[in-house]
């Protein structure tokens, strides 16, 4: 890994960013969808927190902030699908992955770079508008300290890594399953529920809560949200996310080498 490969993966990330930037109508439609989803969830949460103030340790403003943060990150972290994984699975199914494999580049780093590029675009293109909209029209709890915002950005970056690592494993399953629809849907469900996209994870009581908060998906939304809302210690959160990122990326490498060594590349 020299500066040469650094420049390559930077170019891949830039390409990932621009690929999504070319589809403006899709971006506009996405912004609209996220805003509408946000509105539905906000009114549901407001009703819920009206009945149970301080549910999960959040006050009403924090709960509302959580909703808009979730909508801002939904596309960027591809929690409900829509990341690189659909494309990679299709390439594995059709055998186009052969093209990726003979290149002098690392498969995992290549797709990581492409997905980070995509995530950055969707954070800016699809995330900012719903978040600003929510902050303007609803009572939100945003920090004033620059250091908290900085810590939040670090958690976002780590969330991107964990999100990628999870979806990379999902995508590689196509080497064995060929039709990855079932796995994708399971990953999508697990992502929505276990990240806190439906309800903040600190709302869940007892063992279920403990388990869900320890799973990697909580790195995606719950962890950045708690840092932004001042509910979690940033360093502990970084460590939690980084551990999952390292473990899952390493597992991805292991599966990758097994896949490329033992499995036939499709298409003759």
């Amino acid at each position: 890994m020299g500066t040469g490969s650094g420049r390559l993966y930077a170019a891949v990330a830039a390409g990932g960013f621009r690929r999504y930037a070319t589809y403006r109508a899709a971006t506009a439609a996405g912004v609209f969808t996220n805003t509408v989803f946000g509105l539905i969830l906000v009114y549901t949460y407001l009703a819920l927190w009206d009945e149970r103030p301080q549910l999960g340790g959040y006050d009403q403003a924090q709960a509302v902030t959580f909703v808009w943060l979730g909508q801002a990150l939904l596309a960027a972290l591809a929690i409900g699908g829509g990341g690189f994984e659909d494309e990679l699975m299709e390439r594995i199914r059709t055998g186009d992955v052969a093209v990726d494999l003979y290149r002098p580049a690392d498969l995992q780093l290549w797709w990581l770079a492409a997905d980070v590029g995509r995530a950055l675009f969707q954070l800016l293109g699809r995330g900012v508008v719903p978040f600003v909209f929510g902050s303007l029209f609803f009572p939100v709890a945003l920090p004033r300290e620059v250091s908290v915002w900085a810590a939040f950005l670090v958690t976002l970056l780590l969330a991107m890594l964990v999100g990628f690592a999870l979806r990379y494993l999902v995508a590689l399953s196509a080497f064995w399953l060929l039709d990855g629809t079932g796995v994708t849907q399971m990953a999508w469900l697990a992502g929505l529920f276990c990240s806190g996209m439906l309800l903040p994870l600190n709302v869940f009581p007892g063992v279920l809560g403990e388990v869900v908060r320890a799973l990697p998906w909580s790195s995606l939304l719950q962890a950045p949200a708690d840092v932004l809302l001042g509910e979690a210690d940033p360093l502990g959160t970084f460590a939690f996310q980084a551990s999952w990122a390292v473990a899952l990326l390493a597992l991805g490498r292991l599966v990758q080498s097994a896949a490329t060594r033992r499995v036939v590349v499709q298409g003759g």
Binding site: G15, R19, T22, Y23, V99, G267
Partner: peptide
């Protein structure tokens, strides 16, 4: 390498 039925080019760009 050129695989006639596959492409190494970036589809959207």
């Amino acid at each position: 390498v050129v695989f006639g039925q596959r492409t190494t080019l970036w589809w959207d760009l």
